[in-house]
Amino acid sequence: MIASILAAAAQVIAGSTVRWLGCAPTAGQRVYIANHSSHFDFIVLWSYLPPPLRRLTRPVAARDYWERDAVRRYLATRVFNALLIDRVATPGTAAAGLGRQAVDQMVQSLDNRHSLILFPEGTRGAGEDLAPFRSGLYHLCRTRPEIEVIPVYLENLNRILPKGHLLPVPMLSRITFGAPLHLQPAEEKDAFLERARQAVRALKEAA
């Protein structure tokens, strides 16, 4: 109920044109990888998935941001069913172990038949170009090579909710879903991450 209302509100604000260019909105298990320029990104991407897919798709988000207050914690855990991962080391876990722990969480979630929304840049950019992708995506694909990775390009969302603002301004945006990617058997980490990054970036110009 709250999920449907929030999804409808996000659609009124973001008025997205949705283009499925390289794949169809079908129920297969997927990892959506998108460019990241706004806190609004995953809400909009999530709200434009058809409702049956939406219920099975978990955004991967930073625990330190989404557990900061009761409202955000409620939204993240109850509404978006987000997969919260640690970016900040807590006593007892070494910083180096955080990445592996995050990948383990994602693999576990995939094994529970969920799809994931992932922002491999790791943090929000200025909306102009994509930062290099973090290696978590590669390790995830190494562990579950059969998974379909869908590149997604989100346009104009940094204008709807820029960094440092709380409320979104209505503006038209565009979501483009591309053709699925797979990690090739002998593919090197950096080559794969760069190929995935270019696949996301190419959707900006795709007609």
């Binding site: 204008r159 301004v169 209505p170 038209l172």
Partner: peptide, 22 residues
């Protein structure tokens, strides 16, 4: 509301206009 949403999309606003747009 919808017309304004379409129009503002085409206007080269900057992040500092966010308050005025709200």
């Amino acid at each position: 509301f919808l017309a304004l949403r379409e129009f503002i999309t085409l206007v080269p606003t900057r992040p500092s206009d966010h308050g005025a747009l709200l």
